[in-house]
Simulated assay, not measured.
Amino acid sequence: MKVFTLAFLIYLDYKALQQREKLTKRSKRDSLWEKAHERNAKRVLKLIVELEGLWVKMGQYLSTRADVLPEAYIRLLKQLQDSLPPRRLEEVRQTIEQQLGQSMDELFTSFVSVPLATASMYPFMA
């Protein structure tokens, strides 16, 4: 529902811009579009970060598609390549213990609780 709501909001924003453009001097039209792209790209980025998971992957892919999206979207979505907020340690601990079937204390002699970065991890198929 959040995705459809945002898509509708962005649609309305661009439709309103099309109407405003008719009343704007030619010299200022490019600036209007750039501001709209920036505003809407920020909205998209914020929602992608909130939704996590596959949405982040889609955002990462879209950040490589300069042939499809305006520059503002590409620039902001590139943040998904290496600037995602880290997950809480308890969430990481729970995932590791669930996937590996042992407690963190049994698996590691030491574990640094301060994250260095965020990464995507895929389970390996045996």
Rank of each mutant, 00 (worst) to 15 (best):
Q94K: 11
S120A: 09
S103Y: 08
R87H: 06
Y73G: 06
E34F: 09
P86T: 02
L51H: 04
M104G: 01
L116K: 03
R93C: 07
R26H: 11
Q18W: 12
L77H: 09
L9Q: 14
L76F: 07
Y122S: 11
P115I: 06
Q18M: 12
P86A: 01
P123R: 05
Q98H: 10
S31M: 10
L6T: 01
M104F: 03
Q79C: 00
P115A: 06
A36L: 01
G53E: 10
R88C: 02
I74M: 07
E97K: 07
L77M: 06
A126W: 13
D105I: 11
K35S: 12
Y61G: 03
R65K: 11
L76N: 08
S83W: 00
L47C: 06
F111L: 11
E90G: 05
Y73D: 03
R43I: 02
V44T: 14
S83T: 04
K78V: 03
T5E: 13
P123Y: 00
L76Y: 01
A119P: 03
L116V: 10
Q81E: 13
L84M: 09
P85Y: 02
V44N: 01
P70T: 03
Y61R: 07
S27E: 15
F108K: 04
L107Q: 08
V92C: 04
K46M: 11
K42E: 15
A117T: 13
L9Y: 10
L12F: 13
E34W: 01
A117E: 15
I74Y: 00
